[in-house]
Structures are given as C-alpha cells and as structure tokens.
Design a protein around this nucleic acid. Structure first.
Lengths: 196, 196
DNA sequence: CAGATAACTTACCAAATGGTAAGTCTATGT
DNA sequence: ACATAGACTTACCATTTGGTAAGTTATCTG
C-alpha cells in the first residue's frame, strides 16, 4: 500500500488547512499528527504550496461529489434549491473542513485559487441559468440572479460554518442546532424566493 | 505627540490582522510598514497577543460606532433593517478590515474573543428582541428570530466581504458593484421578511 | 544475487519569528 | 544643571519554519 500515506497526508492537511488556516498549520505539526516526519510529507509534495494545491484539488472533488448530485438533480423550482441547501448542510456537518477550505481559499485568493475559482464559476454559472429560468417561468421572484446567488451562498456557508456566531446567539453548534439551522435557512430562502 | 505611534500601530495591525489574518502577519512586517522597529511595537504592547487584544478592542469600538447609529435609530419595521444593512455595507466599503477582523475572531474564537463575543451578544440580543417585536406586530414574517438573524448576518457579511466569490460570479468587487450588492441584498431581505 | 527504485528517516540549515536586555535620545520637572 | 521617565533603537537569542542532502530499508526486477 504505497499511496496510502499520500492520502492520509491530504486528509490531515485538508482538516488542518480548512479548520485552522494555511499559515497557522506547520508541516511539523501535520507530520506529528500523522506519526511520520515532515520530510515524508515533502517527499510526496515537494513544497507546502504544492501540498496546498493538492489539498484544494481534493476539496474541490469532495465539494463536487457532495453537491453534484443535488445540482444535477432533475428537481425543479424551489425543490432544487432545497436539495442544494440540504446537501451543503450535510457536508458542513460531515466535513466542515471542506467548506472551511473553500472559504479560506476564496478569501485569500492566492495563486492556488485558480482551480477552485474555475470550478466554482462552473457551478455558479449553472446556478445562474437555473435561477434565471425559474424567474422567467414566474416561479421565483424577480431579483438580480447573481446577487441573489451571492446572498444565498453567503447565508448558507455562513450558517453552516460560523459556530462562534451561533454561540453568540445562544445556540450550541451541535447537530440538533444544525438541523434547526438548516430548516430555518430553507424557510428563509423559500420566503425570499417564492413569488406570491 | 506621544500616543500617536500607539494609534498608528493599532491602525496598521487592524488592517493587517483583518485582511490577512493573525498568523500571516509578523511583527517585523508591521514594523517595517510603519517605519519603526519591531521593538517599538513591543514597547507599546507587551506581546503579539496583547496587540491582538487591543486591535480587537479598536475593531469593536469602530463596529459599535458604525452600526450604533443605525441600531439605535427610532425607525421601525423593515426600515430599521435597511438602515443596518446600509451601515454595514458602508463600513465594508470604508474599512473592510474591521469586518474582516470580526469574522476572523468569531471563527477562531481564541481567548481574546471574549470581548468581541460579548459585544456581539449585546447587539444580537437587541436585534432578537426587535425582530420578535416586529413579528408579534405582524410586520415581519414568522420565522425563528435567532436563525433568521444568523442568516441575515451571514448574507450581509458574506456579500460585503467575499470579493473572490463576487469575481467568480463575474462581478468586479468595485464600489459600483458594492452599491448594487447592497441594493439587491436589501431587496432580498425585504422579500424574505415582509409578511404578505 | 546485484542493483535499482520507492518510501521513507536522520541530520542539517538558513531564514524568519516572537521576545529580552541594554543602551540612546529627548523632554520635563526640580 | 541634573536626575527621571518616556519613547524609542541596536544587539541579541531561542525556537520554529520550510526546505536540502544524505542515508536506510524493503520490494521488485534482471
């Protein structure tokens, strides 16, 4: 099993980068978490930046497979939005580090963000067309589609990945609250989107 | 003018911490930006962590004065939400680092987050009561107030501080787009909140 | 069995980092 | 005139960081 270590490294670094940040994570830390030496990491990934790139690739893949099903579903109208939000919350509960990394990269924007940016562009492009079609069909309220999506994206990602704000609101960020948050987010979006 | 350097340090570190993160900002960098030595910083703030604390204090103050007016305004119903969103966008355009730091701290949650957390708790507490009153008066749609606020907070902060996502949507994060984003965010919230 | 290759580890290293100690320079109060 | 205190700077320092070089071990191949 030669390629197993490589996968373990990627997994651990995805968690570390996604939850604590790039600069806050040292290769030595990653290595000792994995019970190997730092040089083993540098054997598989020639530099920390390359490791980040590979980690982003993994996150993009996981994001795609988590949201791909919902995004390509045949459901129409608000049901499709609901499917997407459910898939996002499910990912946030299962692997919060993936969304954390997405947010990290989309903020920093470094040289490595190209791939993620283009992957997101594709997904967002599809989403824009979908929303426009629903608006044209009169099923969604008429709003600027891209701004609408930005607001929806922000609301979902924020709710799913800001545990401290939940605490400030007096809500424990446990599974039960997350389920409640999901339901409320969906109701919120339904209210905002459904044309009367 | 003895206390001037201290203020300049705080100002620069607020920008650096808020836009690039705590670990990604070194004292040497801050110092050379300011044209002083690192030890001058450590003279005013005995450690990097103390500097962070003082920086958070400043951010809390700026946040308070930027949103305080809108939050204590006498306006009722949706107008008050609109005032708040406008104030937030104005802050995001003028001093994005303040919101950046708020988000950074609210995510990391470190030992220093106490003050900010409590300040936010107060503001959010007021907001919850306001929303509940509006719902009781039948002016706002009935949703879970805290979850609603979390979604609103996330949407506004996200739209105001995620330039990369805007780029992925094909929108330049310049002032004009920000104005558009503000208008659309308000319309989005209006649609979500106003009871029919 | 020889040797090449993959998958590591041990040994280093230069630069950067947060922090300490001691000195300098200026203003102020006595 | 002089001590004192404030606001720094110059000189260091230990640790951490990302990265290189040179082994070591096991497996596979001719």
């Amino acid at each position: 099993m030669p390629a197993q270590t490589r996968d373990r490294i990627l997994d651990t670094s995805l968690a570390a980068f996604g939850l604590r940040g790039y600069d806050s994570t040292s290769l030595d830390e990653l290595a000792s978490d994995l019970g190997i030496t730092k040089q083993a990491i540098l054997y598989h990934f020639s530099s920390k930046e390359h490791l980040l790139n590979a980690t982003i690739d993994l996150a993009v893949k996981e994001l795609g497979s988590a949201l791909g099903g919902a995004s390509k579903s045949q459901s129409r109208g608000f049901q499709r939005i609901e499917d997407l939000v459910r898939a996002t919350f499910s990912l946030a509960a299962r692997r919060p580090e993936v969304l954390g990394l997405v947010r990290l990269v989309s903020r920093q924007g470094g040289a490595a963000s190209g791939e993620l940016a283009s992957a997101m562009s594709v997904m967002l492009g599809e989403a824009v067309r979908f929303v426009e079609a629903e608006m044209a069909a009169g099923r969604f309220r008429r709003l600027e589609p891209r701004m609408l999506l930005l607001a929806v994206y922000s609301a979902v990602i924020g709710v799913a990945t800001e545990p401290e704000v939940m605490r400030a609101l007096g809500l424990e960020p446990d599974l039960r609250s997350l389920v409640k948050a999901r339901r409320e987010t969906i109701e919120f979006l339904r209210a905002a989107l459904i044309a009367d």
